[in-house]
Amino acid sequence: MATLKELATRDGKFCGGHRLCPGCGAGIVTRQVLAAAKDNVVVGCATGCLEVSTTIYPYTAWNTSFIHNAFENAAATTSGVEAAYRALKKRKKFGLEDSKYNFIAFGGDGGTYDIGFQSLSGAMERGHRMLYVCYDNGAYMNTGIQRSSATPLGADTTTSPAGKEIPGKVQYRKELTDIIAAHYIPYVAQASPSNWKDLTRKVEKALSIDGPSFINIISACPRGWRIPEDQGLELHRIAIDSCFWPLFEIEDGVKYTINYKPKTKRPVEDWLKPQGRFKHLFKPENRYLIAEEQKRIDERWEMLLRRAGELD
């Protein structure tokens, strides 16, 4: 496992001068993922904040090979790159015989949970040697904070607005990490850039595997979450301590490991309260949603513990 000093020597594949908002989690996630990646990297990226803010022609923040195709096909596109690598290596073209390349696809929650879901599922099932990273900020931020299937219950977004009749998003978020694990691929994990050690270890592990891997990473959006610019990482810690965003990994579809257990689980209110998108939930008539979310989180945490063999 790399120390920060080592990681710092590998830095530089993702540069400053991009146009992500100040304090954007996507920038932190991307930097940590790429710093953990040794060897050559080809990045595929879905349309979304990360892509549109980092490749505004004629500038690019990517100091490594990069391709954006469209919103829903980062996985398929990257699988094509990986297939090309296998083909060209086999045919001894471009001197690739002795080369080492990593293939990393990035997508937001919209480009991953929703519109890119099929493309991702297909690429994982086919077994391409690639790491797919979802930076999950819980909404379509690039187009102005619309709800996605990753948006948490009750969140106020521009297409699940908190109104007089409807108190924000009425559905639970879907647990994509579990769904990808159900592909029985070698490695699936959930991570957070507030825990860089855990995150970079997971990336290193994923890239060491001769097959597909998926890491779902929570990623603060100060604008969409309605939090101050410097609060993102702190909120990630609360997300982990409240078990809203557990850190765990799943090998070969079945072997669950919990990577972090809070000493005392924080109440979900601690996670909701600092964020403007949940403000309305604290009105008396909406508080039942907080209770529902707490129940859901508790059930899920128990399920994870059980699967990891930490509960009988």
Binding site: V42, G44, I67, N69, A70, E72, N73, A76, T77, T78, S79, G80, V81, A83, A84, Y85, R86, A87, L88, K90, R91, K93, F94, Q118, S119, S121, G122, A123, E125, R126
Partner: peptide
């Protein structure tokens, strides 16, 4: 000895072909 990618849709067929072509294939 072509790498044949058995995609799950035509959208992915063209996307993977695009990725492969961009990669140099």
């Amino acid at each position: 000895d072509t790498e044949f990618v058995t995609v799950e849709s035509e959208h992915s067929a063209m996307s993977a072909a695009l990725g492969a072509s961009a990669a140099g294939a």
